[in-house]
Simulated scan of single mutants.
Amino acid sequence: MQVQPYLDFNGRCEEALNFYREVLSAKILLLKHYKDSPVPDMMPPQYNDKVMHAEFQIGESILMATDGHCVDNAQPPSGFSLSMEFSDAEQVRRLFDKLSNGGRIDMPLAPTFWSPLFGSLTDRFGISWYIGVETPAVQG
């Protein structure tokens, strides 16, 4: 069994996918708009160019995404974070800066007792990220 995150971007899915493609070298594997649905009256016409379903890859991870119901007063995603670890501190700094651009830094990059460099941020699309330098597994 595999669990995959399914992210709802509330009308900004394609913008988010392009951002992740630029910043994280994400690969868009599948992109379907509501207008591509075999059930044309599924959503009102203003949703035609919105993303019904997308799949994209960051590193070895596959994520899914949608514009959802594009509700104007929808709350940003909450209750989860996406986490990435890298062996190189410079890569962590670079990606942290790029992902936080237009977003919010929740915990600035700094050494912690669990990582030589770790920080958290919420990107411009409301997605929470934990980013750090990987540490060797503890033998026990």
Rank of each mutant, 00 (worst) to 15 (best):
D72F: 00
S83Y: 13
D106P: 00
D106A: 04
K27Q: 14
E60C: 10
S128G: 02
S83C: 13
S61G: 05
D88F: 04
A110C: 06
Q75W: 00
M42I: 13
T112S: 14
E60T: 15
L82N: 05
L99C: 01
S37M: 08
V51P: 11
Y130C: 12
L30N: 15
F118G: 06
E90A: 11
T66H: 07
E85Q: 13
L31R: 14
D67P: 08
F96K: 00
S128D: 08
D106V: 02
F86S: 11
D123A: 05
G119M: 07
M43S: 04
L99Y: 02
S87P: 09
L30F: 15
K98N: 06
G59M: 10
Y34R: 11
R124W: 02
C70T: 06
R94H: 03
S81P: 01
W114F: 14
P44Y: 10
Y47N: 06
L121F: 05
S115H: 06
H33V: 06
F125C: 05
N48I: 02
T122Y: 02
L95S: 01
R94N: 05
Y34V: 09
L63F: 15
Q46E: 15
Q75L: 12
V51Q: 13
Y130F: 15
T112V: 07
Y34P: 04
L63Y: 12
L117P: 01
V92Y: 02
R93K: 15
P38Y: 13
D67K: 09
C70D: 11
L31T: 10
V51D: 13
K35P: 11
T66G: 08
G103R: 04
S81K: 02
L31Y: 14
D97V: 00
D67Q: 08
S37G: 11
G59F: 10
K50P: 06
S120Q: 15
C70W: 03
S83T: 13
